[in-house]
Nucleic acid binder design. Structure first.
Length: 838
RNA sequence: GCCGGGGUGGCGAAACGGUAGACGCAGGGGACUUAAAAUCCCCCGGGCGCAAGCCCAUGCGGGUUCGAUUCCCGCCCCCGGCACCA
C-alpha cells in the first residue's frame, strides 16, 4: 500500500468507534451464562464513586483506570473478569448539595449518574453496565434494610442513648469517624456532644477477629497497620478501687474506722498495673456516672461548675492535647489496695468517658499526663519504677516512662516492670473489694467504638423499625421491604434532633407488625457507610429481585479477588465492610468471612505539589484533555505519572509524551501491508522477551509506570533509524498495550487481521526465558569500588576470562600498577572489583 | 507526640547491596522539507580538562561492606493519618 493510504492517528474517531462496538457486541456485558459459569472468574472491584454534580474528576479517573488496566490484563490472561461500577449516591454529601442548589436529591441524582456514566464510558473502562447498583434505588436499599434486620434479629443492632457527636451546622449526628480533629468532616464546624437515642451496630464484639484476620489478608502493610491502629488493642488490667466513706473526721460516734469502705468501687483500665503503688490519686471523666456518688457536699458546687464548663466546651477545645490540664477535687477518696493509702478522687477532662472505663488511676511518676496534672494541683508524685541510673528515691523531674525494676511497691520490689504486670494482676485477682468482686483482672481494651448507624437526616434508607407502645421496637417484616423513602419537599434538617421524616405524619404513622396496634416508624435513616459496606455483595446479583445476593452466584464470584481504592477509606469503609461480611457469615448467609482477598490503595494526584481543590483553582478538567489527546493517551499519561500506589504530580504539558508514543505505535503498525514478514531478528526477539517479562510482572504488581517505560523502550528499538517493523514484532506489543490503551489496541488488532476482540481470547504473549537471555554482557570493572572501565564478554564468562580482559584495560591497569592486590570480587555478568592497597 | 509515606537532574521519575539518573517532559543542535508539523539522529546533574580522563553528587551526620539511593544508628525537612487512648 502506498503512503497516501496511511491514515493519521485520530483518537476521537478510534475511541468513538470502539466504544460503540463494545456496546453493540456486549463485550463488557455479562451474559447470564458467563456469570454462572465463568472461566477462571476474577472479580475486579474498585471503590464506587459518589456521583457529584461536577462529574468525574481526575482522581476518580486515576483510580478507575488503574483498576481497569489490571482487569483488562487479567482478561488477556484468560480470566472471566467481572468489573462492575455503581453509584454511592445517598448521604450527607448529596443532601447538602441538593439543599444548596435548592433541587430535590431525587431529581438531582439521576442527572449526575447519567453524566458519570457517560464519562465512565468515555475513559474506556470495561465496566459491566448490566450489573450496576445505585444505593438510592429502592431495589438496592431494600436489601440494605434487610441487612439491618439481620443484624437486629441477631442482637447485633441495638438502640441506646449515648453521647454522640453533633454537628451544629449539618444538624446531625456524626460517627466518630466523621469527626476529624474535633471538626465535622463535611463542614469543619466544631462538633458538640449530645445524648440521643441511637442505633448502634456492635462491631466491638468483632474487634479481636477483625484484628486477627488481618494477618492473612493480601493487603498492603500500611492499610493493615491503619486498621490495627483504629481497632487499637491494648493489653492491661481492670482494677477496682474501693470508695471510702466520707463520714471520717465528722466527730460523732468516735467508734469504728474513720474510712469505712462503701460498697462502691471505681473501676479503671490501665496498661501498667505494675505501677499500682504509684497511683496517688484517681481521676474520673467529668461525665462519669459515679461523680455524684463520690462528691462531698462541700465540693458539690465546684464539681458542678466544672462539669457544666466542660459540657459546653466543644470537642476541638476539649481534645486539645497541649492545653493546660484542668480538673477539680470531688472530696471523695479511694483506697489504693496495694499501699493501703487513702487517695483523692478528682474529675478532669483529660480523662475521656469514651475510652476504657472513663476513669483512671493516676500514676504521676510514670505517666506524662498524670505528672503534669499532679504538678498543676500539688498532688504527690511517687517513683515505683527505677531505671538503670535510678535508686528507689531518685527524685522525678519528669514522668519516667522507660523500662526498669519495681521499687516502693512492697512485695513486688525488685521485679522487672514487665514481669511485675502478671504478678500484680494475679495478686489483684486474689483480693476482694465491694460486693465480693475481685480487685481486678487482666483485660484487653479496644479503642474501637460501636458503630453508630442512625442519622437524623432525610437522604438515606429509612431504618426498618416500627415503635409500638406495647411491643417496643419491632422489625418491619422482610416481605414488606423496602420501607420506601417518601418524597418530601421540605427535607431540610433542623435543630430538633430528629429527622425531617418525623415531620411527615402520614408516613411514620403505621400499625405495629406484631400486635396490629398503632405504631410509629423509625424516622432516622442509616449511615451511608452501611450502603457501601455490602455493595460488592450485590453487584453479581444486581439483576435479582428475590435476594440480596444469590448463594450460588456469590460462591462463584466472592470474595473479591482484587479491590482497588483510595487510602482515605483504608480504615472505615474497609472495616465496616469486613464487619458486615463477618456478621453475615456468622448468620449463615456467606461462606467466607473476609470480603477482599487483595486490596491495594492507589496514590493521589496532586498538581504543582498541592491537593487539587476548587478553592485553589488547580482542578484538572478531564473532558477537554480527552477531547484533544484521547482517552487512551490520558490513561497512559496517568499511569505513567509515577508509581500507582504513590500517586504523582500532574503536569499539563507532559501528556505529549504518551500521545506521541501512541502515534508512533500507530505509524509502526499501519498500514499493515507495509509490515515486514521475516522472522524476528535475534536482538529484537531478546528485547521482546525481556519486555514481556517486565511488563507481565509489573502490571501484575500494579507497577504501571515502569511497565509503560518498558513498552516505550521496545518501541524505540523497533523504530531505530526509521526502521520498518515486522508483524511478529508489533503483535505482542499491541497486546501488551491493550490494558492501557484499549481502543487503539482493538483498532490495530483488527487491522492485523483478527476478527475477534483483542480481549475476547487469552492473548497475552508468552515469556520464554531462553529467548530473553543476553548473549554478551558488559561488566563493570572497579578498583576499590570505583568504576574504572567496562569489558564486553560472553554471558556467563568465568572470573579468569574477565580478570584477564580487565587487567588489559588501560585505565584499570593504571590503578593496579604499583599497588598490592588484596582481593578480587567477582559477580558473574555484573562486575569485577579489584581491592588494592597503595 | 505517635503511626505511615517521601526527600535522587530544570521537571515527573528509574535503579535483585553491584556501571546512579532507565523511560518521559522541557531545552539545545542536526538530517529530511519551499516551509512548518510529524519523523529520525546527537547533546542534556555540577566542576576541572584539548583529550584520555579525574573529582564532586541520591536531605544532613555517623556506621556496616570490596562496594550503600538501597542495610543499621542519630538528626532535619515535606506530605498524609491519628492524637490527653490511660
Amino acid at each position: 500500500m502506498s503512503r497516501e493510504d496511511r491514515r493519521p492517528y485520530s483518537p476521537a474517531q478510534v475511541e468513538t468507534r470502539w466504544q460503540e462496538e463494545w456496546e453493540r457486541r456486549g463485550t463488557n456485558l455479562f451474559s447470564h451464562e458467563q456469570l454462572e459459569a465463568p472461566h477462571d472468574p476474577y472479580y475486579n472491584l474498585m471503590m464506587f464513586p459518589y456521583p457529584s454534580a461536577e462529574g468525574l474528576h481526575v482522581g476518580n479517573i486515576y483510580a478507575f483506570t488503574g483498576a481497569d488496566v489490571h482487569g483488562r490484563y487479567r482478561r488477556l490472561r484468560g480470566h472471566t473478569v467481572f468489573e462492575p461500577m455503581g453509584f454511592d449516591a445517598f448521604g450527607i454529601h448529596s443532601e447538602n448539595f441538593a439543599l444548596k442548589v435548592g433541587t430535590h436529591p431525587m431529581d438531582l441524582i439521576p442527572g449526575n449518574v447519567a453524566n458519570f456514566t457517560r464519562q465512565l464510558r468515555r475513559i474506556g473502562g470495561m465496566f459491566d453496565w448490566n450489573h450496576t447498583v445505585d444505593t438510592t434505588q429502592p431495589d438496592y436499599y431494600r436489601w440494605t434494610q434487610w441487612i439491618f434486620l439481620q443484624l437486629f434479629k441477631a442482637g447485633l443492632a441495638e438502640r441506646k442513648e449515648a453521647p454522640v457527636n453533633w454537628c451544629p451546622s449539618c444538624l446531625t449526628v456524626l460517627a466518630n469517624e466523621q469527626v476529624i480533629g474535633g471538626l465535622c468532616e463535611r463542614c469543619d464546624t466544631p462538633v458538640e456532644q449530645r445524648r440521643i437515642a441511637q442505633w448502634f451496630f456492635q462491631i466491638t464484639k468483632y474487634a479481636q477477629r477483625l484484628l486477627d484476620n488481618l494477618d492473612d489478608l493480601d493487603w498492603s502493610d500500611t492499610t493493615r497497620k491503619a486498621q490495627r491502629n483504629w481497632i487499637g488493642r491494648s493489653l492491661g488490667a481492670r482494677i477496682r478501687f474501693p470508695v471510702l466513706s466520707e463520714t471520717a473526721g465528722q466527730g460523732g460516734s468516735g467508734a469504728g474506722t474513720t474510712d469505712e469502705e462503701r460498697s462502691l468501687a471505681v473501676e479503671v483500665f490501665t496498661t501498667r498495673p505494675d505501677t499500682l503503688a504509684g497511683a496517688t490519686y484517681m481521676v474520673l471523666a467529668p461525665e462519669h456516672p459515679l461523680v455524684d456518688a463520690v462528691t462531698t457536699p462541700e465540693q458539690r458546687d465546684s464539681v458542678d461548675r466544672y462539669r457544666s464548663q466542660v459540657g459546653t466546651m466543644d470537642l476541638v477545645a476539649r481534645k486539645k492535647t497541649d492545653k493546660a490540664k484542668t480538673g477539680v477535687f470531688t472530696g471523695g477518696h479511694c483506697r489504693n489496695l496495694l499501699t493501703g493509702e487513702k487517695i483523692p478522687i478528682w474529675i478532669a477532662d483529660y480523662v475521656l468517658m469514651e475510652y476504657g472505663t472513663g476513669a483512671i488511676m493516676a500514676v504521676p511518676g510514670h505517666d506524662e499526663r498524670d505528672f503534669e496534672f499532679a504538678r498543676e494541683f500539688g498532688l504527690p508524685i511517687r517513683r515505683v519504677v527505677a531505671g538503670p541510673d535510678h535508686s528507689a528515691d531518685t527524685p522525678l523531674e519528669e514522668a519516667y516512662t522507660g523500662a526498669g525494676r519495681i521499687v516502693n511497691s512492697g512485695t513486688f520490689d525488685g521485679l522487672d516492670w514487665e514481669a511485675a504486670i502478671p504478678a500484680v494482676v494475679e495478686w489483684l485477682e486474689g483480693q476482694s473489694v465491694a460486693a465480693g468482686k475481685s480487685a481486678g483482672e487482666g483485660h484487653v481494651n479496644f479503642r474501637l467504638r460501636d458503630w453508630c448507624i442512625s442519622r437524623q437526616r432525610y437522604w438515606g434508607p429509612p431504618i426498618p423499625i416500627v415503635y409500638c407502645d406495647d411491643c417496643g421496637p419491632v422489625a418491619v417484616p422482610e416481605d414488606e421491604l423496602p420501607v420506601i423513602l417518601p418524597r418530601v419537599d421540605d427535607f431540610k434538617p433542623d435543630d430538633s434532633g430528629v429527622s425531617p421524616l418525623a415531620r411527615v405524619e402520614e408516613w411514620y404513622r403505621t400499625t405495629c407488625p406484631e400486635c396490629g396496634g398503632p405504631g410509629r416508624r423509625e424516622t432516622d435513616v442509616s449511615d451511608t457507610f452501611l450502603d457501601s459496606a455490602w455493595y460488592f455483595l450485590r453487584y453479581p446479583s444486581a439483576q435479582r429481585d428475590d435476594v440480596a445476593f444469590h448463594p450460588e452466584t456469590t460462591r462463584t464470584w466472592l470474595p473479591v479477588h482484587c479491590y482497588i481504592g483510595g487510602n482515605e477509606h483504608a480504615v472505615l469503609h474497609l472495616l465496616y465492610s469486613r464487619f458486615i461480611t463477618m456478621a453475615l457469615h456468622d448468620l449463615g448467609h456467606l461462606d467466607f468471612e473476609e470480603p477482599f482477598t487483595r486490596f491495594r490503595a492507589h496514590g493521589h494526584i496532586t498538581r504543582e505539589g498541592a491537593k487539587m481543590s476548587k478553592s485553589k483553582g488547580n482542578v484538572v478538567v478531564p473532558d477537554p484533555i480527552i477531547e484533544e489527546f484521547g482517552a487512551d493517551a490520558f490513561r497512559i499519561y496517568l499511569m505513567f505519572l509515577g508509581p500507582y500506589q504513590e500517586g504523582g504530580d500532574y503536569r499539563d504539558a507532559a501528556i505529549q509524551g504518551p500521545y506521541s508514543f501512541l502515534s508512533r505505535i500507530w505509524d509502526s503498525v499501519l498500514p499493515v501491508e507495509d509490515l515486514r514478514n521475516d522472522p524476528l531478528e535475534p536482538e529484537v526477539e531478546r528485547k521482546l522477551h525481556q519486555t514481556i517479562r517486565q511488563v507481565t510482572e509489573q502490571v501484575d504488581q500494579l507497577q504501571y509506570n515502569t511497565a509503560i517505560a518498558a513498552l516505550m523502550e521496545y518501541l524505540n528499538m523497533l523504530r531505530t533509524g526509521g526502521r520498518t517493523a515486522g508483524r511478529s514484532e508489533v503483535e505482542p506489543l499491541v497486546v501488551m498495550l491493550a490494558p492501557f490503551a484499549p481502543h487503539m489496541a482493538e483498532e490495530l488488532w483488527e487491522a492485523l487481521g483478527h476478527s475477534e476482540s483483542i480481549f475476547q481470547v487469552e492473548n497475552w504473549p508468552a515469556f520464554d526465558p531462553e529467548k530473553a537471555r543476553e548473549s554478551s554482557v558488559e561488566l563493570a570493572i572497579q578498583v576499590n569500588g570505583k568504576l574504572r572501565g567496562t569489558v564486553e564478554v560472553e554471558a556467563g564468562s568465568p572470573e579468569e576470562v574477565v580478570l584477564a580482559l580487565a587487567r588489559n584495560e588501560e585505565n584499570v591497569a593504571r590503578y593496579l600498577e604499583g599497588a598490592t592486590l588484596r582481593r578480587v570480587i567477582f559477580v558473574k555478568d555484573r562486575l569485577l572489583n579489584f581491592v588494592v592497597t597503595a
